[in-house]
Design a protein around this nucleic acid. Structure first.
Lengths: 190, 190
DNA sequence: ACTTTTGTTAACAAAATTGTTAAACATTAA
DNA sequence: TTAATGTTTAACAATTTTGTTAACAAAAGT
């Protein structure tokens, strides 16, 4: 059991799944069952640890999406794959997106070097072509893509809120999210 | 100029518009042009200040939405009002929703007492009836409402990310969001 | 005019965290 | 088995931030 990797995995769970933004190095160390100083030994600083695990998590997501976007499938199949992959990934670390906004943007840490997404732009172009072909109904392709990601991500990211507002337990909400995969596809295409 | 109110207004700007989650009492005091101790004098603690301004901001939003939801308009007009009001409100404090998730849920501070939303449930019921009437196409009313809020909120909340990914400046993105008001209505209803 | 209340400030004390240092320990290779 | 390298730990120092206290100023009430 590699402690360096184990610390990173634990930090990801705490930050991006549990959503404990303010977890101290001590809490992370406790959860990982290691001495706090090890965190400094391997990662030098808390900020650095955060940056590393964040980048890794983003990278994983990016790879998954790239695989789908650049795959050779019929457009509608690709769309189904995308929904499946993206919603599953975001369920793994639902707080990752919120942290991007609240932690990283204001710090200007990561967005500085972050360039426009080649894959996303390619996907928008593909959507444009499919609209021309008539595979899907006429829309602005940028809106189409943003709609798609909104419909997938928002209900997961905001789950704690809407579970309260709608008075649904975890089980019910899980079913609700499962239903959405087919529903989003339908709403977006037809 | 009432300093107590002025501190609250400044805190709202910093927290919910600027999105500076980690703003210290000193920074808030500086931005408001008052002595730091005044914050403790009026609000006792930083957490308390946060809770107060958060609740106020939520309350404001809730009132706006209640006004629309309980108004006597034809359903489609009500929908248009809702989109207009909600998107404008969320543009005022785009970081408020993220903070609900990252700050408040994990702390279990505010969600404990927060009950299911009467207005939201009433609105879902109205949607159900309109679907029955055939005003809008057949869908699950809960999905309909979640779709609606997803399409409105997500692109605003995530603006910093998608502006980068799509390489759009503030002006372009503002136009893009304006377009969405009509677009969302169309996608949702037809 | 003076007494009380409210508002404001600077200085202090306490707490919480972080990063560093140096030493102990373990592992591997010479 | 010793040297060298890498890993782990406790103790320390520095920093940051917060909340409190006590003194001072202004306003209001009597």
């Amino acid at each position: 059991m590699n402690k360096e990797e184990h610390i990173k995995a634990t930090a990801k769970e705490i930050f991006f799944f549990k959503g404990d933004l303010h977890a101290t190095t001590q809490e992370i160390a406790d959860a990982a069952g290691v001495n706090r100083s090890l965190i400094n030994y391997y990662f030098r600083s808390r900020d650095n640890l955060f940056e590393i695990v964040y980048n890794e998590a983003v990278e994983t997501m990016r790879n998954q999406l790239d695989n789908v976007i650049y795959s050779k499938q019929a457009f509608k199949d690709k769309l189904k794959s995308l929904i499946e992959v993206y919603m599953n990934e975001i369920l793994k670390y639902p707080y990752k997106e919120s942290f991007l906004i609240t932690e990283i943007c204001s710090k200007n840490v990561l967005l500085k070097e972050k360039k426009k997404s080649q894959a996303l732009i390619a996907f928008i172009e593909e959507v444009r072509q499919e609209i021309e072909k008539g595979t899907i109904k006429k829309t602005d392709p940028v809106h189409f893509v943003i709609n798609l990601f909104s419909l997938m991500a928002y209900p997961i990211v905001m789950a704690p809120l809407y579970r309260k507002l709608l008075d649904l337990n975890k089980e019910k909400y899980k079913d609700f999210l499962s239903e959405r995969k087919a529903m989003v596809f339908k709403l977006i295409t037809e």
